[in-house]
C-alpha cells in the first residue's frame, strides 16, 4: 500500500472512532427522533382519521373550526407584515448606526423570546383589561381589546416580533455597508438605495424570518389563550379551538384541527429548507 493512503486511512479512523461507538450514537439519535417527533406526528393523523375521512372532513368544515381558521389567518396577515416592517427597520438601525440606547433595543427585540407567552398575554390584560390602565378609557369609547379580536392580534404581534429582526440583523452586519455607500456616490437617494441595494442583499434572510414569523403567528397558544376569553367561533384561533374540542372529549375534532397545524408545520419546514438552499446557492 502507498504510504500516504495508509496515513489517510488511519486519519479517517481516528476521526470517526470505532464502528460500535458510531452506530450507538446514530442509533441513540434516531431513537430520540422517533420517540419525540415521529410518534407524535403519526399519532396526530391516526387520531384525526380514527372515525374515517367523513368525520375528519366534518370536523374541519364545522362553522366554528372555519371561524377559528379565519381568525388565525387574520392574526397572521396583520402580524407578519407589521413585524416585517419593524424587523427590517430595527435590523437596519442596529446594523448601520451607533446611537444611545442601541444595546437596549437589541435586548428589547429578544424580550418576547425571554418572557413566558402567558406573562406576555397577562401584560395586555393588565393594560387593556376592564381593571387595566387603559381599561376605563377604552370602555368610555366602547372599544374592546381583551377577549376580542384586537387583543389576539396584539398578543400575536408581540410574540412574533423578534423573528424577522433576528434573521436579518446578522445578514446585514456580515455584508457591511460598502455597496450602499457606492450607491450613494452614484447619486441614488437613501430610499432608492434601500429598495435597489439593501433589500435585494438581505432578501433570503427576510424570507426566512417571515416564514418563521408566520409559523409562530399561526401556532401561538399561551399569550393568545390569556387574552382570548375563549368565545367560541369569535375569539378562538386554531390552537385554542383544538384545546376546546379536546377538553370536550371530541378527540377526532381536536386532532383533525391539530392535523391542520401539523400540515402547516410540514409545509413551513419544506419552504424553509428551500429558502436555505436558495440563499446558499446565490
Amino acid at each position: 500500500m502507498h504510504p500516504s493512503t495508509l496515513v489517510l486511512r488511519r486519519r479517517t479512523r481516528t476521526l470517526s472512532g470505532p464502528a460500535v461507538v458510531r452506530w450507538a450514537l446514530i442509533g441513540a439519535a434516531l431513537l430520540f427522533l422517533a420517540v419525540f417527533l415521529l410518534v407524535p406526528l403519526v399519532a396526530v393523523f391516526t387520531f384525526a382519521f380514527q372515525k374515517g375521512w367523513a368525520a375528519y372532513v366534518a370536523a374541519i368544515s364545522d362553522p366554528e373550526a372555519l371561524a377559528a381558521m379565519r381568525l388565525t389567518l387574520t392574526a397572521a396577515v396583520i402580524a407578519v407584515p407589521l413585524n416585517l416592517v419593524f424587523g427590517l427597520a430595527a435590523a437596519w438601525l442596529i446594523a448601520r448606526f451607533r446611537f444611545p440606547g442601541r444595546s437596549l433595543l437589541v435586548t428589547l427585540i429578544d424580550l418576547p423570546f425571554s418572557v413566558s407567552p402567558v406573562i406576555a398575554g397577562l401584560i395586555f390584560v393588565l393594560l387593556f383589561g376592564r381593571q387595566g390602565w387603559l381599561g376605563p378609557w377604552l370602555a368610555e369609547r366602547n372599544l374592546q381589546v381583551i377577549f376580542a379580536v384586537p387583543g389576539i392580534v396584539l398578543a400575536t404581534v408581540f410574540v412574533t416580533f423578534p423573528f424577522v429582526a433576528r434573521e436579518v440583523l446578522p445578514v446585514m452586519q456580515a455584508q457591511g455597508s460598502d455597496e450602499e455607500e457606492a450607491a450613494l456616490t452614484l447619486g441614488a437617494s437613501g430610499w432608492r438605495t434601500f429598495w435597489r441595494v439593501t433589500l435585494p442583499k438581505v432578501k433570503w434572510g427576510v424570507l426566512y424570518g417571515v416564514i418563521l414569523c408566520n409559523a409562530r403567528a399561526m401556532g401561538e397558544f399561551g399569550a393568545v389563550s390569556v387574552v382570548s376569553g375563549h368565545v367560541r367561533g369569535i375569539t378562538t384561533t386554531l390552537p385554542l379551538h383544538a384545546e376546546i374540542l379536546y377538553n370536550e372529549y371530541d378527540f377526532v375534532g381536536a386532532f383533525a384541527v391539530a392535523s391542520l397545524l401539523t400540515l402547516l408545520a410540514l409545509v413551513t419546514l419544506v419552504v424553509k429548507k428551500y429558502v436555505e438552499w436558495r440563499s446558499v446557492a446565490s
Binding site: 460598502d178 455607500e181 457606492a182 452614484l186 447619486g187 435597489r196 442583499k201
Partner: peptide, 29 residues
C-alpha cells in the same frame, strides 16, 4: 450631500452590487 458632488468612488472592496450583472452595475448611476 454625497449624491450631488459628482464624484466617482472606487473602493478597495470593489463594492459591486452582487445581485446585478456587470451591465446593470455600470448602468446604476
Amino acid at each position: 450631500p454625497v449624491q450631488k458632488r459628482g464624484v466617482g468612488v472606487v473602493f478597495q472592496s470593489y463594492a459591486l452590487f452582487r445581485h446585478m450583472t456587470v451591465r446593470e452595475n455600470i448602468a446604476f448611476g
